[in-house]
Amino acid sequence: MERKRYAIFSAQFLPHIGGVEFYTDNLARELARRGHEVVVVASAMPDAPEYEVTESGVEVFRLPSFQLIGGRMPVPRRNGSFRRMLNEVSSRSYDGILVNTRFYLHSLVGLKMAKRLGLCPVLCEHGSAYLTFGNALLDKAVVAYEHMITALVKRYSPDAYAVSGKGIAWLHTFGIQAKGLLSNSIDADAFVAQASSRDFRAELGVARDALLVSFVGRLAPEKGVASLLEAMSVLEKEGVAALLVMAGDGPLRGMVEQCGLENVKFVGPLDRGDVAALQLQADAFCLPSRSEGFSTALLEAASCGVAPVATDVGGVREIVADDSCGIVLANASPDSIAQALRLLASDRTYTRQCAKRCAARVRDRFSWAHTADAFIEACERARR
């Protein structure tokens, strides 16, 4: 097989935790495993080196940046170090350049470099709705910003793709016609194998007959955290045997810690091994988000044999194809969430069937080998 070189621009990358970060890391790993040379260009962050070579052989350049909005919006800091590092990256030839997401200024850096090197960049959309920060005025400004920066992105005429069908439809909002899917995926066996020995049921005193519901993700308004807590309050008053274990961090952490509900346990941010252990012990996973690209947390939960309950956003319908695989909520209201969890708690046979079918679907359809094949084809198509 011919050895090729690819660059992946991702505004945020590990050790920062998020879906796009894991997507970039896993795609880079798969390409490197096949013998290709991979360069990841990300934004600098505290306690991360500006340059490193990962254990899988992937080179990572972290360009100087300003971390705005609590680190959610990195902005390139165009100083001498920035220019030096970018010159090093752009001094090489590439067989393809991938730019993850269109709404970061960092993305424009990747698009501009591709144009300078005479390449048509591949742009991958990871969202399916406008960014939201839970603040009406800020969210209104974000809408205007997204349209402005997307207009700049379109000047570089990238070949556009998305991680989900919803993402492809979302690009139409900006007058962009996508060429196909570059789906989020998972190495299910590897994820399950890394599970720690932590016993959450024993640690938290979960009753044997209780439905253990997991939530793993950013504790932010767009994730439906408030509605989920309200739904658990309803179930607690009804005496439904269900317990919610919430893992993560974010601006609503205080709300979770102080909710005062006996059927909600907060375990803070977890490492990958503990996340896998939690999902292997859970009966259901709840994701009542207002917006998702293609949830990594949902893929992880499904691969562990957990029945999913999620809103119809991002790639949810591609994982939960019908009600034999889980429950897709009509909306993220507390009543909808409570109704779904009430059903799973009362019909454990149905819960187990959903978990089994969804796990089989994820393992069959969402592998990094498939995504890497699609990416390589996208790069070859862009060069024609």
Score class of each variant (00 low, 15 high):
4 K>D: 14
7 A>D: 05
10 S>G: 09
11 A>T: 04
16 H>T: 09
32 A>D: 07
32 A>E: 05
38 V>F: 04
42 A>L: 04
46 P>G: 01
52 E>D: 13
56 S>C: 07
63 L>M: 00
74 P>K: 01
85 M>K: 13
89 V>R: 11
92 R>Y: 12
106 H>V: 07
117 L>M: 10
129 A>R: 14
136 A>V: 06
141 A>H: 08
144 A>F: 13
145 Y>R: 03
146 E>Y: 11
150 T>Q: 12
151 A>Q: 11
158 P>A: 11
160 A>F: 11
176 I>W: 09
178 A>E: 01
189 D>G: 14
190 A>Q: 08
198 R>K: 13
202 A>R: 15
205 G>E: 02
208 R>H: 04
211 L>D: 02
221 P>G: 04
228 L>T: 08
233 S>A: 11
234 V>T: 14
261 L>F: 13
261 L>D: 11
265 K>E: 08
268 G>C: 03
277 A>M: 10
280 L>I: 04
281 Q>A: 07
289 S>A: 10
289 S>T: 02
293 G>M: 09
296 T>P: 05
310 A>C: 01
312 D>F: 02
313 V>P: 02
313 V>F: 05
319 I>G: 02
322 D>S: 03
327 I>L: 15
336 S>E: 11
341 L>S: 06
357 R>H: 02
357 R>D: 00
358 C>K: 01
359 A>R: 12
368 W>D: 01
371 T>N: 05
